[in-house]
Design a protein around this nucleic acid. Structure first.
Length: 562
RNA sequence: UGGGGAAUAGUUCAACGGUAGAACAGCGGACUCUGACUCCGUUAAUCUAGGUUCGAAUCCUAGUUCCCCAGCCA
């Protein structure tokens, strides 16, 4: 290998980019054209994001282009709603197909013409066998299939039959057009695959114009060729379709010679990335819709507050290879936190309020304190927060009988109220059942703003909101849909986690949060990243937890090592 | 008993015959007006057995394990 080649190699990040690079370098292609080819039969999910980032990413990196092409060859499953949602999601992810929006249905006439071409070449025939007969004669994984009794029809008869199929003369399932390849092939895809089936259905784009529809295998590669796709990138399960892909390309007068490459699809712990299951979750009412924030759909992640750059970063981190794998969901959370940490403004919110009365603070007095919007970014500015005699703190930030490593509030202990004062817990008030309902504390006026002139330190800083000014809010805490890291997709309903959604009805927010209208993520200090949900009503905002902050204390306390 | 693929730290990827490296997770520490962030340190891997070679994760042979394929779905 020359030094020059070594230098080039270093920019390759995965085996597909290596192939693209080699093809460009060797002159096999002068430019790169890829495509993202969704079937509009469901919403896009994080697994599709991998393919989207790969296809659009490669096009961008190598100065080529990427088409968005709907693989709309099965009108019984496809809907306009999905077509619209897919475009919205790809755009939101940050990719632009420009004017290159296509549909396999754009090529129906050309594909049909090529079907007649195959018949005339003696390479396709109309089969009258029933579905059951075809299955029976296809053979098994270990036994070869048998030729159809209709395999040797004349060109004239085949042409006539195909034309009558197109004209709608036959009912669904009566006949199919098959390629004449090899019924004894070890590769079942080559045992005379179906090219066209009769489907009396309404297509979102072509309406009732067509009575026959091409199969995936017959449509996909030819669509690639028509669009001059150079690298047709798909997932592993299509690996043994490649010989068929190539067979069509070699036997048809196509305008270009695309090549198919396969990579391993994404799998993640605690979720299921299968359109069938996701569809089942929606139609079965297990979730609130395709954009339920617990869903791994792009729409769901967006509603949960995940920024598109976090998804792109995650996809970049997991890489591309041919080995099946399951990515730890913690890796996704990391990308989300990393993206949000940079941009999310800091705010204070108390999820589970515990009232605190500051006994030595003048009754009726209110003052304004400065709070940074982003401690690591002075450019984000600051805001005023109101402080008064009665405040709320987080119930989790108080323990009557704390273990040794509990730094927060407990009887006699002094802590800092973020951006405000040091307070010391003097008294614990309980109700009849023994539940702590209020804390009586004192504050040190000299610590205004959060620093003690005498230099004394406190172990903890806790968040708070002014009771008189706080806005009551609903906060939705999301946890994985499946507690099981590898749920059984075949039995997904039984696998659903009962704690995937926890709704808090009486959270208290600092007023600045009620004013926020944008969907930008905010950090509730010490709690996590949240975003305002569209269900918000005037005076009663609703927030979704996008992801919690890393919580070392939770780990320590859960381990009983306190 | 068919065809097509894949095996490297707990996880996901690198290493393209020449020192097995990163990220996430874990563990320990520093810093801190977020038990966050950041920083530092650290645990931890080539499926097995042969062979070729000065040298093998990489090449060869034989195994093992896992995944995909028998839709008129994609």
């Amino acid at each position: 290998m020359t030094a020059d080649e070594t230098a080039v190699r270093e920019t390759g990040q995965d085996f597909i980019r290596d192939i693209v690079q080699d093809d460009l370098q060797s002159g096999r292609h002068t430019g790169v054209v890829t495509r993202f080819p969704p079937e509009p039969n469901g919403y896009l999910h994080i697994g599709h994001a991998k393919s989207i980032c790969l296809n659009f990413g490669i096009a961008k990196e190598f100065g080529g282009r990427c088409h968005l092409r709907f693989d709309d060859t099965n009108p019984t499953k496809e809907e306009q709603e999905y077509i619209d949602a897919i475009q919205r999601d790809v755009q939101w992810l940050g990719f632009d197909w420009g004017k290159h929006l296509y549909h396999a249905s754009d090529y129906f006439e050309t594909l049909y013409g090529w079907a007649e071409h195959l018949i005339k070449a003696g390479k396709a025939y109309v089969d009258d066998q029933s579905q059951e007969e075809m299955r029976a004669s296809r053979g098994t994984l270990t036994e070869p299939g048998r030729n159809s009794p209709f395999r040797e029809r004349s060109v004239e008869e085949n042409l006539d039959l195909l034309r009558r199929m197109r004209a709608g003369e036959f009912p669904n399932g009566a006949r199919v057009l098959r390629a004449k390849i090899d019924m004894s092939s070890g590769n079942i895809n080559l045992r005379d695959p179906v090219l066209y089936r009769i489907l009396h259905a309404t297509h979102p784009r072509t309406g009732t114009q067509w009575k026959i529809y091409p199969s995936y295998d017959y449509a996909h590669g030819q669509s690639d060729a028509i669009e001059h796709i150079t690298h047709s990138i798909c997932t592993l399960e299509f690996e043994d379709h490649r010989p068929l892909y190539d067979w069509f390309i070699e036997n048809l007068p196509v305008p270009s010679r695309p090549h198919q490459y396969e990579f391993a699809r994404l799998n993640m712990t605690h979720t299921v990335l299968s359109k069938r299951v996701l569809n089942g979750l929606v139609t079965g009412g297990h979730v609130a819709g395709w954009d339920d924030p617990r869903m791994p759909t792009i729409a769901g992640l967006r509603r949960r507050g995940v920024p598109p750059e976090a998804i792109r970063d995650f996809i970049k981190r997991i890489g591309v290879a041919k080995a099946n794998s399951v990515v730890d969901a913690a890796m996704f959370d990391f990308s989300v936190r990393e993206a949000l940490n940079k941009t999310a403004l800091r705010r204070m919110a108390v999820l589970r309020p515990l009232k605190v009365v500051i006994e030595n603070y003048p009754e009726g007095q209110v003052e304004e304190l400065d709070a940074a919007n982003h401690p690591e970014d002075a450019g984000a500015g600051s805001r005023k927060i109101k402080f008064g005699r009665e405040i709320y703190v987080e119930r989790d930030d108080f323990m009557e009988n704390p273990p040794k490593k509990f730094y927060r509030l407990s009887p006699g202990k002094e802590v800092r109220l973020r951006y405000a004062y040091f307070i010391t817990c003097r008294e614990v008030i309980k109700n009849a059942t023994g539940e702590v309902v209020e804390l009586r504390c004192t504050y040190d006026p000299a610590t205004r703003g959060g620093n003690a002139p005498d230099g004394r330190k406190v172990q903890a800083t806790i968040h708070w909101v002014s009771a008189a000014h706080a806005v009551e809010s609903e906060v939705r805490l999301y946890n994985p849909l499946f507690a099981n890291p590898s749920p059984d997709a075949g039995n997904f309903a039984a696998e659903l986690s009962p704690t995937s959604l926890e709704v808090i009805g009486d959270a208290r927010l600092e007023p600045a949060l009620a004013e926020s209208n944008a969907s930008d993520g905010v950090q509730f200090e010490r709690l996590g990243y949240f975003c305002r949900d569209a269900d918000s009503k005037p005076g009663r905002p609703v927030f979704n937890r996008t992801v919690g902050l890393r919580d070392t204390w939770a780990k320590v306390s859960a381990g009983g090592k306190g």
